[in-house]
Structures are given as structure tokens and as C-alpha cells.
């Protein structure tokens, strides 16, 4: 009985030990911290073309692995972030960016929500304007008299 209880405590104790789950851990080496930061930033902002709702950092897909390796290679080759993004764009198009470039094809994506907001705002503005209570007309003498009568009778 005691042994069982002890086992239970050990088990519960183990539950409280959190095992850190990292995203894909590659063993890339960098010369400077700044290069590492750039690698992190790029693989966070580029999207995995295969598993479409994860970035390169979080994806286990084969192509994501290859793209991370390419990013590392390009950083070590001294390419700038812009050049690396251009490399990706030339191969995978706008899709690769979580923040697509502003181009004719992506203009709806960028300003569509704003357009909807403006349309919605215009509609609501008009509804509110229409339903604004009209100015209160003052009663003429006759009406005032009737009102007084009614109130007195109450």
C-alpha cells in the first residue's frame, strides 16, 4: 500500500516536470549572434509551402528543412535579408511570405480589409444618422391644455 502511494507521488511529481518542446532543432552554426537572429527571423516569417499553415521554423516538412538549410547557407555567404527574400520569391512566389509584398496581385489582400471597414463604417454611419431622433416639437396651447387635463385626471 505504502509502495503504491509512493509510486503515485513519484508519478505526480514527474507530471510537474515540464519537458520543453522545441520547434525543429537544426544544428546550424553561426559566426555571430546577429546571423543567428537573422536566421530566426527569416525562418519565422517565411511560410512552409508544403504544410501551409506553419512557418519554416515550425515545420517538419522535407522542403522546410531544405529551405532552412538554404537560408543558413545564404546567411553564411553574406547575403542580405532582401536578397534571401528575393531568392525565395523567385522560386515560391508571394505564397512564401506571411507578409506578402505590395504588388498588383496582392493589393486586395493588403487593402481589402480596409475597404470592408470603410464600407461597413459608411453603412453604420448612415443608419445612425437616419435613426437620430427628430427635434422635439413644443406643444401648442391646445395640446398643452389636453396634457394637463390628462395628467390631472390620473
Amino acid at each position: 500500500m505504502k509502495a503504491k502511494l509512493l509510486l503515485l507521488w513519484v508519478f505526480l511529481g514527474l507530471l510537474s516536470v515540464s519537458v520543453p518542446v522545441y520547434s525543429q532543432v537544426d544544428t546550424f552554426e553561426f559566426d555571430t549572434d546577429e546571423q543567428h537572429q537573422r536566421f530566426r527571423k527569416l525562418s519565422n516569417e517565411l511560410r512552409c509551402p508544403m504544410c501551409q499553415n506553419t512557418n519554416l521554423t515550425g515545420s517538419t516538412g522535407g522542403v522546410a528543412e531544405d529551405l532552412r538549410r538554404e537560408i543558413h547557407r545564404m546567411i553564411m555567404d553574406g547575403m542580405t535579408d532582401q536578397e534571401i527574400e528575393q531568392f525565395m520569391f523567385e522560386r515560391y512566389g508571394d505564397f512564401i511570405f506571411y507578409r506578402p509584398r505590395l504588388r498588383a496581385e496582392t493589393i486586395l489582400l493588403w487593402f481589402g480589409p480596409l475597404a470592408f471597414l470603410l464600407i461597413g463604417g459608411y453603412v453604420i454611419f448612415n443608419i445612425v444618422k437616419k435613426s437620430k431622433p427628430g427635434e422635439v416639437e413644443s406643444l401648442d396651447e391646445e395640446e398643452q391644455q389636453r396634457l394637463d387635463e390628462l395628467l390631472e385626471h390620473k
Partner: peptide
């Protein structure tokens, strides 16, 4: 093997 040509072709699987 490395998927390098695949990247140049924009292949994802």
C-alpha cells in the same frame, strides 16, 4: 538527394 534542384523549381513535394 538534397532537394536543391527542387528548391530551384519551387517544388514542395
Amino acid at each position: 538527394v538534397q532537394g536543391r534542384l527542387g528548391i530551384d523549381l519551387g517544388v514542395y513535394g
